[in-house]
Computed example of a mutant assay.
Amino acid sequence: MEKNYTIYAVDFDNTLCYSTWPELGDPNILLIEYLLKEKAAGNKLILWTCRAGKPLSDAIKWCRDYGLTFDAINDNLPEVVEFYGNNSRKITCDIYIDDRNAYIDPDGKLQGVAI
């Protein structure tokens, strides 16, 4: 699949919004501003959250109140589905942004990513 944009999948609770599910909390302004800039540059955003039903609707509205709109919500982008010929449960993206990220550093140690 050839594309000229980056796909970001971003979590809601304790990532975009400092909250305790199902409550809504304060915004992560630095992350929101970053994503708004990326979206304006033509990149794609996926809201990737465990929320469903009313808590999901509340989160989507909360994001809209901060100017964030998404190209997909808990789903792959249509062009990804078309390219692979199916809609995998795993979201295809270039960058996952989540409060539970971790990676192995060059010394072989598990590290967390602060948001």
Rank of each mutant, 00 (worst) to 15 (best):
V81L: 06
G42I: 11
I73M: 01
K44A: 08
L77P: 15
K37Q: 13
C50W: 01
D98A: 02
S88M: 10
N43E: 11
T92F: 15
C93R: 03
L31A: 03
Y84M: 09
I104F: 00
F12W: 02
N87A: 12
R51Q: 04
S19E: 11
T20D: 15
D26K: 12
I60F: 06
G112T: 09
S57Q: 14
S57C: 14
P22K: 02
W62D: 03
L45P: 13
S88D: 15
Y66C: 06
I46Y: 02
D71V: 12
A9C: 06
N14T: 12
A102Y: 15
I104E: 04
I32M: 04
L68V: 08
Y103L: 10
A41V: 00
Y8I: 11
E79Y: 07
G53D: 08
L24P: 13
I104N: 05
I73S: 01
T6L: 12
I29S: 05
N87S: 13
G42Q: 06
F12R: 01
W21K: 05
C93Y: 01
T49V: 10
C63Y: 03
W21Q: 10
G85Y: 06
K3Q: 04
L110N: 07
Y18E: 13
Y18N: 13
K39R: 14
I7R: 01
S19K: 04
P22E: 09
E2D: 08
D58R: 05
N86Q: 15
N28Y: 03
Q111E: 05
K39V: 06
G53S: 05
I29A: 09
A9V: 01
E38F: 07
D71K: 10
L35N: 07
A40M: 06
R89E: 00
E79V: 06
Y103Q: 10
N43Y: 03
I7T: 09
G53A: 01
D58P: 12
Q111F: 05
T6P: 08
I97N: 04
E23A: 09
F12V: 01
T20R: 00
T69A: 02
V10Y: 02
R89F: 14
I73Q: 02
E2I: 13
W21N: 11
D99Q: 12
I29E: 14
T92E: 14
D65L: 08
P55T: 07
T92I: 15
A114G: 14
T92G: 14
T49L: 06
P106H: 08
Y8Q: 02
D98M: 01
P106W: 11
D58I: 08
